[in-house]
Nucleic acid binder design. Structure first.
Length: 114
DNA sequence: ACCTTGACATTGG
DNA sequence: GCCAATGCCAAGG
C-alpha cells in the first residue's frame, strides 16, 4: 500500500466538503492525515491544475476569514462562489457556527476508499 | 544539497 | 480586538 502524494491527499479531502459547508486549512490537513501542516493546504490549493474541478473557495482560515487580501479580485471571486452555496460573507468572514463542516469520520474514510 | 516560499495555526503580551 | 514570534514541511528553484 503506497501513499498518495501529499497534494493529492489534500485535494481529495477538499472535494468532499459538502454543498453549503466550509472547512479550515488546519481541519483539511488534519483530515488528510497531515496534522500541523495547514500551510501545505494553502500551497496545494494554489497548485490546482487548470481545469480540475475543486471547491477551493470553501476552505477558510480557522477564524472564518477569507485568506486572500480584502478587496482583491481573488477574494471577490471567492465571495461570489460562496454565495452561490448560500454561504454569506460579512466583513470578509463566514460564521463558522453556521457553516463549518463537521464530517462523520467513518463516512469520510469510506468515501476515500474509492 | 541548500534556500525560499507559502490562500496557516497557536500562543502570549 | 491587535501584533509578533514560532512551528510546520513539500515543492520548486
Amino acid at each position: 500500500m503506497y501513499e498518495l502524494p501529499t497534494y493529492t491527499k489534500i485535494w481529495r479531502i477538499v472535494q468532499l466538503i459538502p454543498f453549503g459547508k466550509v472547512a479550515s486549512y488546519g481541519q483539511i490537513s488534519d483530515l488528510a492525515g497531515l496534522p500541523g501542516r495547514a500551510r501545505l493546504v494553502g500551497k496545494s490549493l494554489s497548485c490546482v491544475p487548470e481545469g480540475m474541478s475543486l471547491p477551493w473557495y470553501k476552505v477558510l482560515r480557522s477564524n472564518g476569514q477569507i485568506a486572500f487580501p480584502v478587496g482583491s479580485a481573488q477574494s471577490q471571486k471567492q465571495i461570489g462562489l460562496l454565495e452561490q452555496e448560500d454561504i454569506f460573507v460579512f466583513n470578509n468572514r463566514i460564521n463558522l457556527k453556521i457553516f463549518l463542516w463537521h464530517p462523520d469520520l467513518h463516512e469520510l474514510l469510506w468515501k476515500l476508499e474509492y
